[in-house]
């Protein structure tokens, strides 16, 4: 029914895809590099009164390690300016106060959906100094194209 070469092709090509899967699985489960999947629940209408979002901002939690508690709302990020020294690892804790937003930092792997009712977490190490553009990559309304801020790495 099948030509030999067709079997070989299906075997090799699917093997290649399985190879991609294995790399993904290894990185996710052995190296803890999985995609942002945190899922603690929060009342989306009471974000301002719920810890830690009642006090958004940046906090040093270790040597070269920072924690940023951030809320997203139309059409801004709070806190809006973030500065960290080069070589620091930053843990972002995010939630939305209204509609679905996206949290993306250009030229890094920071990219996460921020959905009302859920807390999202994502981490990035900033090695190179510069100004990084933070933007919302999920359409959120008339001012969506203005929703941005920067992270300065010194």
């Amino acid at each position: 029914m099948m030509h030999r070469s067709e079997k070989v092709w299906l075997f090799l090509s699917f093997g290649m895809i399985i190879g991609f899967m294995l790399i993904t699985g290894y990185q996710t489960f052995a190296l803890e590099m999985g995609p942002p999947s945190y899922g603690e629940r929060i009342d989306p209408q009471k974000v301002d009164e719920t810890a830690p979002f009642d006090n958004p901002g940046i906090k040093q939690i270790g040597e070269d390690e920072y924690e940023v508690v951030m809320t997203l709302q139309v059409f801004s990020f709070t806190p809006s300016k973030i500065e960290v020294p080069a070589g620091s690892t930053v843990h972002f804790i995010l939630t939305s106060k209204d509609v679905v937003h996206g949290f993306q930092v250009a030229e890094t792997n920071l990219n996460a959906m921020v959905v009302p009712g859920y807390v999202q977490k994502i981490t990035q190490k900033f090695d190179n100094p510069g100004e990084y553009l933070v933007l919302c990559n999920e359409y959120c309304g008339a001012g969506h194209q203005m929703m941005s801020t920067t992270i300065t790495v010194k």
Binding site: S5, S13, F20, M33, T108, N109
Partner: peptide
């Protein structure tokens, strides 16, 4: 056989490109 090999390489190269970018941005 030649044509599907090109297809397979296309998939592999695309993967390498994005994977390389991901690793470079870690």
């Amino acid at each position: 056989i030649f044509s599907v090999t090109v297809v397979g390489l296309g998939i592999f190269v695309t993967y390498l490109l994005v994977y390389g970018l991901y690793m470079a941005r870690l």
